[in-house]
């Protein structure tokens, strides 16, 4: 299915940097997945989100699900993250991202959206450790 890499190493580096900064700033775990989604988008996003953290009710996490082929983006927040990132803030980030995506700028839209969500979450509580972030981001995975 793949016809080459989706992003250059520089683009992946930019995305990783934005994600790391947002996580470090907010203490919220962020995840971005690009690819097609079958069925109910919202449900699919929640199911993937549930695998990012141990207890979604307690642990804050945000998943940005983007399907460039189907032209949609879904920002999904765990109940713990929702207390810090309101649905309207998520909507604003989604709007920012779709504005860039409609011009073909996936990387710019994602970095801006991630940064916006990190800002909306606010700074991490003192003493709270930033979520671990393995350095293998950007590699294709099969589900």
């Amino acid at each position: 299915m793949a016809t080459g890499e989706a992003f250059t190493s520089e683009q992946l580096e930019r995305l990783n940097r934005a994600l790391e900064l947002a996580q470090k700033h907010s203490g919220v775990r962020f995840g971005v997945r690009l690819g097609s989604v079958r069925g109910d988008v919202r449900l699919a996003a929640e199911r993937i989100l549930s695998t990012l953290v141990e207890d979604p009710a307690r642990d804050p996490a945000v998943l940005i699900l983007v399907s460039p082929g189907q032209c949609f983006v879904r920002v999904s927040t765990t109940p713990a993250a929702r207390k810090r990132i309101s649905d309207s803030a998520s909507g604003l980030a989604a709007l920012t991202m779709t504005s860039s995506f409609s011009l073909g700028d996936l990387v710019g839209g994602l970095t801006t959206g991630i940064r916006q969500l990190g800002e909306a979450a606010g700074p991490a509580a003192p003493g709270a450790a930033a979520p671990a972030h393995p350095t293998s981001a950007g590699s294709p995975a099969s589900h």
Binding site: F7, L15, V32, L34, G69
Partner: peptide, 20 residues
């Protein structure tokens, strides 16, 4: 990589940014 163009099919494998 070719630039993404809206409206065209996305012919890449699933990509994760962050922790898989």
């Amino acid at each position: 990589p070719t630039r993404y163009r809206p409206g065209q099919p996305w012919e890449h494998d699933e990509v994760w940014i962050g922790t898989k």
